[in-house]
Amino acid sequence: MDIRAGVVETATSPWGQTVPIHIAFYLIWVAAIGGLAFLMVHAIYVQFIAKKQAHVESASPELAAKVPEKVARHSLAARLFHWIMALAMFALLITAFLPKVGYQFPWVTYHWIAGLVLTASIIFHIIHASFWMDFWSIWPDKIDIEDAKRRWLRATGKAAPAPRKFAKYPMENKMYHLTIVLAGLAVILTGVFMMKRVRTPFFTRNPYLFGDMTWGLMYVLHGLAGVGLIALIMVHIYFALRPEKFVITKSMVFGTIPREHYLEHHDPERWAATK
């Protein structure tokens, strides 16, 4: 009860019942500070503590020879999706949270339009990824988990075999995707329902689609996912800007990574980049 009271803001319903209405908005700052703290800790760790990662050499020279100079990493469609989604996400976060921190403007229309763009881009992505991409490449697999264990053991100074190189996406990348999928789906699903409560050209406004309690929980979920996204995106940007990952960031613009980078970090067995 007390924990919930700290995270959730409640209101008295017309029937005099206490119902949640949304998250406590100080959570915006908690998320932002949390995100910041993570990346500071990470930066310090990488700078001062982390040891150079050793990998199992996996690529056979024959295989490596077949790798082209520039390895195609993201198709144009995937890149377009990513940036449209990013734009929509920024628009959503800005329109959602600026009014909460004191900057007032007519935000609702922009917010739901950006929400629709995001929804559309994600629907596109799901379809695109299901039929035109290697659908499973982004989800953590058995090897990822095993390697994560190995890395942990080695980092804590215990004996363990060297982890293997990554497939297309590093384990962190996959985990990030998984988290953002969960947060994104939560925010989108709740958001689409919430459009029923504002005036849009699509349907009659009807806040009574659900009961007060259901709506309240939905708003809370939307809010939690929303502030979660603040932290997630902060972390995302941080990694995108980190020098050792910048190659990947560039690939999100130009579509390819250099051969050397590919060979150093990825396992051609697991991510075939041969012609």
């Binding site: 209101a11 008295t12 319903s13 017309p14 209405i21 949304h22 409560r197 005036r199 009659t204 406004r205 009807n206 806040p207 009574y208 709506w215 708003y219």
Partner: peptide, 19 residues
Amino acid sequence: GGWKCYRAGGNICFADTPT
């Protein structure tokens, strides 16, 4: 009437519903 609407810091307008 004390209904916790947008104006009162809530997240709903009770005056703009189908009923």
